[in-house]
């Protein structure tokens, strides 16, 4: 028992200098990476809140947009309405199709070649640039009906949301325990009834949360909007008639101008847009954590 009376040194205090130095340097560099990512976020938050905050007022949220870049004063009401209406319509199109598509992938298709192919292509579709979606809707819809309308923007945003909704909803359906499906089938329910009244309800919070995240992402999209929706200065609640506008499009349009008045409106619009996106994200998080079915 004499050979083992000294316990091995596990403190790491006797590491060679070189190894200790490499380890410490790596740890510091890795920590630095986090700072590099946090810095732009802090910068964006600070600039948008301070500059946008001074532009924000009740009038800014409700009044119509000044036609001249140089006109001082508020007005982004039509863009706020446009953002909510166009994104909302996009959600109405993309979420039902996306959820049903996810039902196909997880309940019917499973590992069949077609389902695997759709899964891969949905992943590929998330990588299609948003401007290409805009061009697609411009060619396939705007040119066909002959004018730029808000609904064109909804279609483009729906195309962007669809793959995100499908993939996130499928993840959630996969978490539903098979015992539920078997129990429902054992009671004599057909597969469509099992899916509609057992599987989808038990995954509903996860699906809602994923869908809201997709909505938040879509609300900030600019490129497809400027291609398909055009521009307006007044309230246009009708998505099927006349050109429309959104906050993101207004930020882009006003940021490119050298005039202080339009830049101030751009900052105000940025703060409003971030507030909307943030709201959707937070609600999505709350739903996800509050009603989560227990994951694995």
């Amino acid at each position: 028992m004499t050979s083992l009376n000294t316990a091995p040194d596990l403190t790491g205090r006797n590491l060679s200098k070189r190894r200790a130095f490499a380890n410490r340097t790596a740890t510091i560099l890795i920590g630095l990476c986090v700072l590099i990512a946090a810095l732009p976020l802090v910068l964006v938050a600070w600039e948008v809140v301070t500059r946008g905050g001074s532009a924000l007022s009740l009038g800014f949220l409700t009044e119509e947009i000044p036609r001249n870049y140089r006109t001082e004063g508020p007005g982004m009401g039509p863009a706020i309405l446009g953002t909510l209406a166009i994104t909302g319509m996009a959600a109405l199109i993309a979420i039902p199709i996306g959820v049903l598509g996810a039902v196909y992938l997880n309940e019917y298709g499973k590992n069949r070649p077609l389902a695997r192919f759709i899964r891969t292509m949905a992943d590929v579709m998330t990588g299609v640039p948003s401007i290409v979606m805009g061009l697609f809707i411009y060619v396939a819809y705007v040119l066909v009906i002959g004018e730029k309308v808000g609904f064109g923007g909804s279609l483009a945003l729906a195309c962007l949301m669809l793959p995100i909704v499908i993939r996130s909803a499928e993840e959630m359906l996969r978490l539903v325990p098979d015992e539920l499906r078997q129990a429902s089938a054992g009671l004599g329910a057909r597969k469509w009834r099992t899916t509609m009244s057992v599987v989808l309800p038990s995954a509903s919070s996860g699906i809602t949360s994923g869908a809201l995240l997709a909505v938040a992402r879509a609300a900030g999209e600019t490129a497809p909007i400027i291609v398909t929706v055009g521009l307006t200065y007044i309230y246009k609640p009708d998505l099927f008639y006349g050109e429309n506008t959104t906050l993101a499009a207004q930020i882009y349009r006003n940021a490119t101008q050298p005039f202080a008045a339009s830049q101030e409106r751009a900052w105000g619009a940025a703060l409003t847009l971030i507030a909307i996106v943030f709201l959707f994200t937070v609600v999505s998080r709350i739903i996800a954590s509050r009603f989560a079915i227990d994951k694995r």
């Binding site: 964006v44 900030g220 490119t256």
Partner: peptide, 17 residues
């Protein structure tokens, strides 16, 4: 949060600040 910031807002901060 970095992922949720709309790209146009990044562009705005980049070009004006």
């Amino acid at each position: 949060l970095l992922a949720t910031v709309p790209s146009v807002v990044f562009g705005l901060v980049a070009v004006l600040v």
